[in-house]
């Protein structure tokens, strides 16, 4: 599903990923752990082209996203990413946050996108927040809306960049439960996390990174 071959990435002159080779199978759940600044987030951002790679190749299914001829926007619409800081658009309601990309990027009809938003919000138990603005949500609610926003694009892969690091323990649980239910549905996921117990419970595979290299991969 996702294949990285000898990927190296730099941030300015700092090497943040060194010669990473990984193969992530369809439907598998990979937890990425390691100290801060070890390249975990960069790893994710390379997979949907937010960070350019210096060398090496990345494939999603059979499309090489590191090739110059690839339409990155199309790939990105198939790879959902959820950020530590949620990054909901503050000037749009929950509904608009969710329907914007399906309508503008995938050309979905507005009613269709809104129906999708309703059914996805129901799943995460936030239907009553559909007309609220992001600032009216708690952190846990905002993160679940952010997950729904990504899911509304019907992605093949979901990436999570420390999705619970900005949340208190109770909200963390809400968000982890949402991710677990996605796991049950067979979504391919890569989760950067510091929640070790969550990683052991949900992940098929745990990758430990340090200083831009993969130190250890454990089948769980």
């Amino acid at each position: 599903m996702i294949r990285l071959e000898n990927v190296t990435a730099y941030y300015k002159n700092l090497c943040v990923l060194q010669d990473i080779t990984v193969n992530i199978a369809k439907g598998s759940i990979v937890a990425l752990i390691g100290p801060s600044g070890c390249g975990k987030s960069t790893f994710l951002k390379c997979i949907n082209g937010l960070v350019p790679v210096r060398s090496g190749r990345i494939f999603i299914e059979d499309t090489e996203i590191t090739s110059k001829n690839t339409d990155l926007n199309r790939i990105r619409s198939e790879v959902g990413i959820v950020f530590q800081q949620f990054n909901l658009f503050p000037h749009l309601t929950v509904k608009k946050n969710i329907t914007l990309a399906p309508v503008k990027v995938k050309g979905m009809k507005l009613e269709e996108a809104e129906d999708l938003a309703v059914s996805l919000l129901k799943k995460v138990d936030l239907l009553d927040k559909i007309d609220k603005y992001p600032e009216q949500l708690s952190g846990g609610q905002a993160q679940r809306v952010a997950i729904v926003r990504s899911l509304a694009m019907q992605p093949k892969v979901m990436l999570f960049d420390e999705p619970t690091s900005a949340l208190d323990p109770q909200m963390t649980q809400e968000v982890l439960d949402t991710i677990k239910s996605l796991a049950k549905e067979g979504m391919t996921m890569v989760v950067v996390t510091h929640e070790m117990s969550f990683a052991y419970e949900v992940a098929d595979r745990i990758i430990y990174m340090d200083k831009g290299r993969i130190k250890e991969g454990i089948e769980n």
Binding site: L50, R76, S77, N87, L88, F89, A101, K104, V105, R149
Partner: peptide
């Protein structure tokens, strides 16, 4: 972060 979110949803530069 907001720009990253918009990029990752596949919105074009103009959008």
């Amino acid at each position: 972060g907001h720009i990253d979110a918009a990029v990752s949803l596949g919105l074009t530069g103009f959008q």
